[in-house]
Design a protein around this nucleic acid. Structure first.
Lengths: 147, 147
DNA sequence: TAAAATGTTACACTATCTGTAACATTTAAG
DNA sequence: CTTAAATGTTACAGATAGTGTAACATTTTA
């Protein structure tokens, strides 16, 4: 699953849970509503549960419920929950030897550049809340009214 | 070829041409110097030639030469030369009907978001010149001294 | 104890990426 | 004018990654 697909699927699911709060919804219900496979969706929701964005309950009457105010859930938080990159722990060990491998210097340069880009993207995502997305798409949240 | 690989290979080649200016270099020479396949490199250089960043001459004594000041060549310019995306001509045709396809609204939202991210990345790249990269990596340019 | 949910793994299918080769075209030198 | 050597372009097999689905263990309520 590509990062963008994971992110958009997660957001769709979270918005659906905010809308149907406080009723728990099964992965099957959510999957049908947002048009993705329920098994893949469970993988995402499982990770979101570990970061306390949603709560999952197993068993016969189980399902998923939103456990955080849509106003304070941001895209970057979701992204980090579902994407297991090493959070910019890039290999930037300075090599003292200045030998003939310019190619290595280039690669280091681009690794640094791409990590800066990554930081920039995450900064953008920090400024986008689930609430703002729901307002933009005219989806009513039932979270605040019911907590 | 991924976008990042194409970009870094192009930059390596251009730096090499700036360093060895005004001598034309064959794709084989450049490829060996920067560690990529000469055929793939010709594809990149061919596109850079169409944007007048390098000049290619065919024939027995042919090769590639830099044709633009490293100080005014920016990463975004290179990126656009080798990446044939439609430059943000995304399908943002506003649909008047507001029918039940919320999924479509979500997808439109993310298309817009990702294109904003793309713009942000390109803005970063506009601020990085080949000259600055060469200085950072201690590679001496022979372009200005010889034009 | 059984039913129904999550949690996790596996897998075939597809698509994309990667490296390489092949060959047509162009052009300068002999 | 012929040949050698370069670019320009296309094609392709192998490797890698993405996609959709299924299967099954685990958990928990009725």
């Amino acid at each position: 699953m590509s990062a963008s697909t994971k992110l958009s699927s997660s957001v769709k699911a979270i918005c659906y849970l905010a809308e149907s709060y406080p009723n728990p919804k099964t992965s099957k219900e959510i999957a049908e509503n947002i048009g993705v496979n329920s098994s893949k969706l469970r993988q995402l929701l499982s990770m979101l549960a570990k970061q306390n964005i949603v709560v999952s309950t197993q068993g016969k009457t189980g399902g998923f419920t939103l456990s955080k105010d849509p106003g304070i859930i941001h895209l970057q938080e979701i992204y980090c929950s579902i994407e297991d990159r090493k959070a910019f722990h890039l290999d930037v060990t300075r090599r003292k030897e200045k030998k003939q491998d310019r190619i290595h210097d280039f690669n280091n340069y681009f690794l640094n550049l791409f990590s800066e880009v990554q930081v920039e993207i995450e900064d953008m995502m920090k400024n986008i809340s689930i609430k703002s997305i729901m307002e933009r798409l005219s989806i009513k949240s039932n979270y605040n009214e019911n907590q």
